[in-house]
Amino acid sequence: MLKFANVCKRYPLTGDVLRGVSFHLQRGEIAFLTGHSGAGKSTLLKLIALMERCNSGEIWLDGQKLSHVKDSQIPYLRRKMGFIFQDYKLLHDRTIFENVALPLIIAGYGHQETTRKVRAILEKVGLAGKEHKFPLALSGGEQQRVGIARAVVNKPPIIIADEPTGNLDPELSEEIMSLFEGFQQVGVTVLIASHDIALIERMHHRVLKLEHGRLFSV
């Protein structure tokens, strides 16, 4: 599903962040990506999101080589990924419904289908009835669930989350994690960057650790 082969990433000012990272995630697998602050977790996720390009090595997603894809193809590839962020990255001047509907509208779904899918996913993350509220009127946990709903509404085969539970208390974190496990059940691959050691230990999933630009399986 997702494959890194000897990937290197260097920032002009910072220097080498990833030095020959290789790993392979199967379909329907959940994995945590850990490492101390500045280890390059976000950088690795940005390579998948095509927000950054790697300097060498190859990245494959769903049989497609991401590392050499043309810029014009990036939007279409991103529709196969769901992104979740620590700071949610919601549009504050749009309602919850509009936020969640955005990927569907972009993908070209009609009004009826969009409405149906958005309602269904909001129900699933426990936000039914709040669709006409604005993000800032919700709690942190609720906003993160909006972010998750937006990430999965178009049924992407892979979900990429950067510190999704960073701002949440342990109880909420587990709630979010159980949502991820639910998606895993239907064959979605999930990669979560996190340094919430307690949470990672409790969850018993595969753990990948970044250290000095190299990746270790724990």
């Binding site: 569907l104 993908a107 239907v186």
Partner: peptide, 25 residues
């Protein structure tokens, strides 16, 4: 295809069609 994938979690090369389908609904 997705439901099929749950049963057989094997990496398969996607059909060209599938890539295209992802471009739009």
């Amino acid at each position: 295809k997705q439901t099929q994938e749950v049963k057989v979690p094997k990496q398969a090369k996607p059909l060209r069609q599938e890539v295209k389908q992802n471009r739009a609904a």
